[in-house]
Design a protein around this nucleic acid. Structure first.
Lengths: 94, 94
DNA sequence: CAGATAACTTTCCATCATGGAAAGTTTTAA
DNA sequence: TTAAAACTTTCCATGATGGAAAGTTATCTG
Protein backbone atom coordinates (compact mmCIF):
# COMPACT_ATOMS: atom_id res chain seq x y z
CA UNK A 1 0.00 0.00 0.00
CA UNK A 2 1.33 3.41 -0.93
CA UNK A 3 1.94 5.76 1.93
CA UNK A 4 1.89 9.50 2.22
CA UNK A 5 5.33 10.99 1.90
CA UNK A 6 5.90 13.50 4.70
CA UNK A 7 8.43 15.43 2.66
CA UNK A 8 5.88 15.98 -0.09
CA UNK A 9 2.79 16.28 2.08
CA UNK A 10 3.54 19.67 3.62
CA UNK A 11 1.37 22.20 1.77
CA UNK A 12 4.12 24.38 0.33
CA UNK A 13 6.17 21.44 -0.81
CA UNK A 14 3.12 19.74 -2.29
CA UNK A 15 2.48 22.86 -4.37
CA UNK A 16 6.10 23.07 -5.42
CA UNK A 17 6.14 19.47 -6.60
CA UNK A 18 2.83 19.88 -8.37
CA UNK A 19 4.17 22.91 -10.21
CA UNK A 20 7.35 21.12 -11.19
CA UNK A 21 5.74 17.91 -12.35
CA UNK A 22 4.27 19.67 -15.35
CA UNK A 23 7.35 21.74 -16.25
CA UNK A 24 10.91 21.02 -17.25
CA UNK A 25 12.19 23.66 -14.87
CA UNK A 26 11.00 26.74 -13.07
CA UNK A 27 12.89 29.56 -11.51
CA UNK A 28 12.97 30.53 -7.87
CA UNK A 29 11.22 33.82 -8.36
CA UNK A 30 8.27 32.33 -10.22
CA UNK A 31 7.69 29.69 -7.57
CA UNK A 32 8.00 32.28 -4.87
CA UNK A 33 5.38 34.49 -6.49
CA UNK A 34 3.08 31.57 -7.09
CA UNK A 35 3.29 30.30 -3.51
CA UNK A 36 3.34 33.76 -2.01
CA UNK A 37 6.04 33.00 0.52
CA UNK A 38 9.20 34.78 1.62
CA UNK A 39 12.60 34.04 0.16
CA UNK A 40 13.72 32.31 3.31
CA UNK A 41 10.71 30.03 3.45
CA UNK A 42 11.02 28.99 -0.16
CA UNK A 43 14.75 28.46 0.15
CA UNK A 44 14.23 26.19 3.13
CA UNK A 45 11.47 24.18 1.52
CA UNK A 46 13.55 23.70 -1.62
CA UNK A 47 16.47 22.62 0.49
CA UNK A 48 14.29 19.99 2.15
CA UNK A 49 13.26 18.64 -1.24
CA UNK A 50 16.82 18.70 -2.50
CA UNK A 51 18.20 16.90 0.54
CA UNK A 52 16.03 13.88 -0.18
CA UNK A 53 16.90 14.03 -3.87
CA UNK A 54 13.49 15.08 -5.16
CA UNK A 55 14.67 18.21 -6.95
CA UNK A 56 17.81 19.60 -8.54
CA UNK A 57 18.84 23.21 -8.77
CA UNK A 58 21.01 24.83 -11.38
CA UNK A 59 22.30 28.35 -11.35
CA UNK A 60 22.30 30.09 -14.66
CA UNK A 61 22.10 33.67 -15.82
CA UNK A 62 19.11 35.42 -17.19
CA UNK A 63 19.25 39.07 -18.16
CA UNK A 64 22.62 39.37 -16.56
CA UNK A 65 21.29 38.22 -13.21
CA UNK A 66 21.97 34.93 -11.47
CA UNK A 67 18.89 32.78 -11.27
CA UNK A 68 18.19 29.42 -9.76
CA UNK A 69 16.35 26.92 -11.93
CA UNK A 70 14.59 24.09 -10.23
CA UNK A 71 13.49 20.76 -11.65
CA UNK A 72 12.11 17.48 -10.35
CA UNK A 73 14.45 14.52 -10.47
CA UNK A 74 13.23 11.12 -11.60
CA UNK A 75 13.13 10.15 -7.96
CA UNK A 76 11.05 13.21 -7.16
CA UNK A 77 8.73 12.48 -10.02
CA UNK A 78 7.99 8.97 -8.87
CA UNK A 79 7.76 10.01 -5.22
CA UNK A 80 5.19 12.60 -6.20
CA UNK A 81 3.22 10.09 -8.24
CA UNK A 82 3.22 7.63 -5.34
CA UNK A 83 2.12 10.34 -3.01
CA UNK A 84 -0.77 11.29 -5.27
CA UNK A 85 -1.76 7.64 -5.50
CA UNK A 86 -1.69 7.37 -1.72
CA UNK A 87 -3.87 10.46 -1.45
CA UNK A 88 -6.33 9.06 -3.94
CA UNK A 89 -6.47 5.78 -2.08
CA UNK A 90 -7.23 7.56 1.14
CA UNK A 91 -9.82 9.85 -0.35
CA UNK A 92 -11.61 7.41 -2.59
CA UNK A 93 -11.45 4.05 -0.93
CA UNK A 94 -11.52 4.69 2.79
CA UNK B 1 -10.02 29.52 -4.79
CA UNK B 2 -10.33 26.69 -2.31
CA UNK B 3 -7.54 26.37 0.19
CA UNK B 4 -6.09 23.46 2.05
CA UNK B 5 -7.55 23.13 5.51
CA UNK B 6 -4.73 22.64 8.01
CA UNK B 7 -7.02 20.83 10.42
CA UNK B 8 -7.87 18.26 7.78
CA UNK B 9 -4.53 18.12 6.01
CA UNK B 10 -2.58 16.34 8.75
CA UNK B 11 -2.28 12.71 7.63
CA UNK B 12 -4.08 11.07 10.53
CA UNK B 13 -6.91 13.54 10.46
CA UNK B 14 -7.20 13.25 6.69
CA UNK B 15 -7.63 9.51 7.08
CA UNK B 16 -10.14 9.92 9.86
CA UNK B 17 -12.26 12.29 7.78
CA UNK B 18 -12.01 10.07 4.73
CA UNK B 19 -13.21 7.10 6.76
CA UNK B 20 -16.08 9.07 8.24
CA UNK B 21 -17.28 10.63 5.01
CA UNK B 22 -18.50 7.28 3.77
CA UNK B 23 -20.03 6.09 7.05
CA UNK B 24 -22.79 7.25 9.33
CA UNK B 25 -20.62 6.65 12.37
CA UNK B 26 -17.59 4.67 13.40
CA UNK B 27 -16.35 3.70 16.81
CA UNK B 28 -13.08 4.73 18.40
CA UNK B 29 -11.61 1.28 18.40
CA UNK B 30 -12.21 0.68 14.71
CA UNK B 31 -10.59 3.95 13.73
CA UNK B 32 -7.71 3.25 16.03
CA UNK B 33 -7.10 -0.15 14.47
CA UNK B 34 -7.41 1.25 10.99
CA UNK B 35 -4.98 4.09 11.59
CA UNK B 36 -2.70 2.02 13.77
CA UNK B 37 -2.13 4.72 16.34
CA UNK B 38 -2.15 4.79 20.13
CA UNK B 39 -5.21 5.70 22.17
CA UNK B 40 -3.71 9.01 23.15
CA UNK B 41 -2.87 10.01 19.63
CA UNK B 42 -6.31 9.18 18.32
CA UNK B 43 -8.00 10.90 21.21
CA UNK B 44 -6.03 14.06 20.56
CA UNK B 45 -6.67 14.07 16.84
CA UNK B 46 -10.38 13.55 17.38
CA UNK B 47 -10.39 16.36 19.89
CA UNK B 48 -8.80 18.66 17.31
CA UNK B 49 -11.52 17.78 14.81
CA UNK B 50 -14.22 18.19 17.41
CA UNK B 51 -12.97 21.57 18.56
CA UNK B 52 -13.47 23.02 15.10
CA UNK B 53 -16.85 21.37 14.80
CA UNK B 54 -15.96 18.84 12.13
CA UNK B 55 -17.00 15.76 14.09
CA UNK B 56 -19.38 14.78 16.87
CA UNK B 57 -18.91 12.04 19.40
CA UNK B 58 -21.58 10.09 21.22
CA UNK B 59 -21.05 7.63 24.01
CA UNK B 60 -23.21 4.57 23.89
CA UNK B 61 -22.94 1.03 25.16
CA UNK B 62 -22.13 -2.00 23.13
CA UNK B 63 -21.81 -5.42 24.72
CA UNK B 64 -21.98 -3.82 28.12
CA UNK B 65 -18.97 -1.67 27.39
CA UNK B 66 -18.92 2.07 26.89
CA UNK B 67 -17.97 3.00 23.36
CA UNK B 68 -17.47 6.27 21.61
CA UNK B 69 -19.15 6.71 18.25
CA UNK B 70 -17.82 9.31 15.91
CA UNK B 71 -19.50 11.00 12.98
CA UNK B 72 -18.81 13.90 10.62
CA UNK B 73 -20.95 16.97 11.09
CA UNK B 74 -22.36 18.83 8.10
CA UNK B 75 -19.64 21.38 8.62
CA UNK B 76 -17.04 18.64 8.64
CA UNK B 77 -18.50 17.12 5.51
CA UNK B 78 -18.28 20.33 3.54
CA UNK B 79 -14.87 21.20 4.94
CA UNK B 80 -13.63 17.81 3.79
CA UNK B 81 -15.14 18.27 0.35
CA UNK B 82 -13.53 21.69 0.00
CA UNK B 83 -10.24 20.28 1.11
CA UNK B 84 -10.41 17.52 -1.47
CA UNK B 85 -11.27 20.07 -4.14
CA UNK B 86 -8.29 22.15 -3.09
CA UNK B 87 -6.06 19.10 -3.30
CA UNK B 88 -7.35 18.27 -6.75
CA UNK B 89 -6.78 21.82 -7.91
CA UNK B 90 -3.21 21.69 -6.73
CA UNK B 91 -2.48 18.29 -8.17
CA UNK B 92 -4.23 18.65 -11.51
CA UNK B 93 -4.00 22.23 -12.51
CA UNK B 94 -0.72 23.48 -11.14
C1' DC C 1 -20.16 -4.30 47.33
C1' DA C 2 -15.04 -4.10 46.10
C1' DG C 3 -11.66 -4.63 42.95
C1' DA C 4 -10.54 -5.35 38.12
C1' DT C 5 -10.89 -4.03 33.46
C1' DA C 6 -12.17 -1.63 29.26
C1' DA C 7 -12.24 2.51 26.99
C1' DC C 8 -10.89 6.40 26.54
C1' DT C 9 -8.69 11.34 28.22
C1' DT C 10 -5.23 14.22 29.92
C1' DT C 11 -0.71 15.50 31.25
C1' DC C 12 4.16 15.49 30.77
C1' DC C 13 7.93 15.65 27.92
C1' DA C 14 10.88 15.66 24.00
C1' DT C 15 11.36 16.46 19.18
C1' DC C 16 10.43 18.46 14.88
C1' DA C 17 8.31 21.64 11.56
C1' DT C 18 7.37 26.17 10.07
C1' DG C 19 7.64 30.84 9.57
C1' DG C 20 9.31 35.74 9.95
C1' DA C 21 13.18 38.81 10.46
C1' DA C 22 17.60 39.88 9.85
C1' DA C 23 22.23 39.05 8.65
C1' DG C 24 25.30 36.84 5.30
C1' DT C 25 27.01 35.38 0.57
C1' DT C 26 27.73 35.63 -4.28
C1' DT C 27 27.37 37.59 -8.67
C1' DT C 28 26.73 41.20 -11.79
C1' DA C 29 25.43 45.97 -12.92
C1' DA C 30 26.60 50.86 -12.83
C1' DT D 1 34.07 50.08 -6.08
C1' DT D 2 29.79 50.48 -4.53
C1' DA D 3 25.03 48.99 -5.18
C1' DA D 4 21.66 45.70 -5.98
C1' DA D 5 19.66 41.29 -7.03
C1' DA D 6 19.01 36.74 -5.73
C1' DC D 7 19.15 33.78 -2.86
C1' DT D 8 20.95 31.27 1.88
C1' DT D 9 21.59 30.83 6.64
C1' DT D 10 20.94 31.90 11.34
C1' DC D 11 18.18 33.23 15.16
C1' DC D 12 14.09 32.93 17.51
C1' DA D 13 9.42 31.97 18.73
C1' DT D 14 5.44 29.14 18.16
C1' DG D 15 2.82 25.19 17.33
C1' DA D 16 2.24 20.20 15.96
C1' DT D 17 2.95 15.45 16.92
C1' DG D 18 3.85 11.48 19.30
C1' DG D 19 4.94 8.17 23.18
C1' DA D 20 4.48 7.10 28.00
C1' DA D 21 2.20 7.24 31.93
C1' DA D 22 -1.25 8.75 35.00
C1' DG D 23 -6.16 9.84 35.48
C1' DT D 24 -11.42 9.03 34.68
C1' DT D 25 -15.56 6.72 34.29
C1' DA D 26 -18.51 2.94 33.51
C1' DT D 27 -19.35 -1.85 33.83
C1' DC D 28 -18.22 -6.59 34.82
C1' DT D 29 -16.80 -10.31 38.08
C1' DG D 30 -16.33 -12.66 42.32
Amino acid sequence: MSQLDPVIHAPNRLRICAMLVTSAELDFKLIKLQLDVSDSVLSKQLKALEEVGYIETKKRNQNGRPRTWISLTDKGQSAFESHVTALQNIINIS
